[in-house]
Design a protein around this nucleic acid. Sequence first.
DNA 1: TTTTTATATTTGCATGTACAAACAATTTAT
DNA 2: ATAAATTGTTTGTACATGCAAATATAAAAA
Lengths: 145, 145
Amino acid sequence: MIGMKECNSKYCNCLYYSANALSRVMTKMADEEFAATGLSSSYAFLLMTVNDKPGVQPKEISEKMMLTQSTVTRLIEKMEHKGFLERKHSGRNTEVYPTAKSKKLDKKIKQAWMSLYKRYTAILGKEKSKKLTDDIYGAAIKLHE
Amino acid sequence: MIGMKECNSKYCNCLYYSANALSRVMTKMADEEFAATGLSSSYAFLLMTVNDKPGVQPKEISEKMMLTQSTVTRLIEKMEHKGFLERKHSGRNTEVYPTAKSKKLDKKIKQAWMSLYKRYTAILGKEKSKKLTDDIYGAAIKLHE
DNA sequence: TTTTTATATTTGCATGTACAAACAATTTAT
DNA sequence: ATAAATTGTTTGTACATGCAAATATAAAAA
C-alpha cells in the first residue's frame, strides 16, 4: 500500500464498490452540467446519439450507450413525449429521428458535455483523466465479455 | 491512441460514460455472486457493515458505503422488515444492530464477496484489478471534494 | 410452403438511488 | 434561559435501470 491514499472504508479495495462510488459522483456532476440544457445526463446522451445519426435504431442506441434495450425504449418514449424525438416503425424495426427541437439543442448539449469534461479534468488532470477513462472503459468491455 | 483498444462508441472517452458502464457491469456481476446469499449487492454490503460494527449509525453507514443518508434509511428499513436488522433510537441518533439471522449469514456473504473478487481478477488480472480499483477509488474521493 | 428459429421492440414489474423537505434533538449564541 | 443554528434521521416523490415475458416480424429450415 505504498504511496496510497488512506482508505476511508474497508470496501475501497473492491472494484464493485469503487466503480459504483465513482459512477454516482460522476452522474451527479454530469447532471449538474447538463442542467444547463434542461435535461439529465442520460437524455442528453440519447439526443446526441440520435442527432448524430437520424434514423438510428434502438438496438444500436443500446449498444452505443451500453444500456439494455428496454431502458433505451423507456428513454426514447419519454423524449418522444416531450417532443424531442419521433419514432417511425418499419417492420420489426424502429427508426428514431430527432425533431427540430432536438437539433436546436444539440450545440448546447455538446457545450455542457465539454463543461463536464473540463470540470473533472481540472480536478484529476488531463492526462490522468484520459488514462483512467481508457482503463475503465477497457475493463468494462472485458468484463462485459 | 497508440496501443489502444478500438472504441465502440464516441462516448468512450468520457469518464461519466465509462464509469457508468463499468458500474452497471460490476453491479450485475456482484448481484450474480451475492445471489448465493439471497441478497442483492447493496444489502449484502449493508449487512457486512452492520455485522462488523453492531450499533453503527446510519450516518456512518452512509459514509462507509458512499450512499446518501436517505438511501441508507431505505436499505435499513427493508432489512429490518426482513428480520436482518434492528433499529434502536436514542435521541436524534439511531443505532443499527444485526439480528442472529444477519450474523448467521455473514460468512456466506464474505464468501460471495470473495467469489466476486476472484471472478473479476480472473478476467482483468490481479495486479491490474488492484491498480484500477485504487485509481477509481482515488478519483471518486477527489471528485467528491 | 409451412414450421421453426432468431431478432427487434415493447411491456409489466421490481428496485436502488437521489433530492428536497420535514422532523427531532442537540449544540451554540445571545 | 431562550432563540437560533446545526446535525441526524426519516418521508414524499421521482426516476433511471434491469430482467423476464410478451409481441411482432424476419430469416432459415423442413
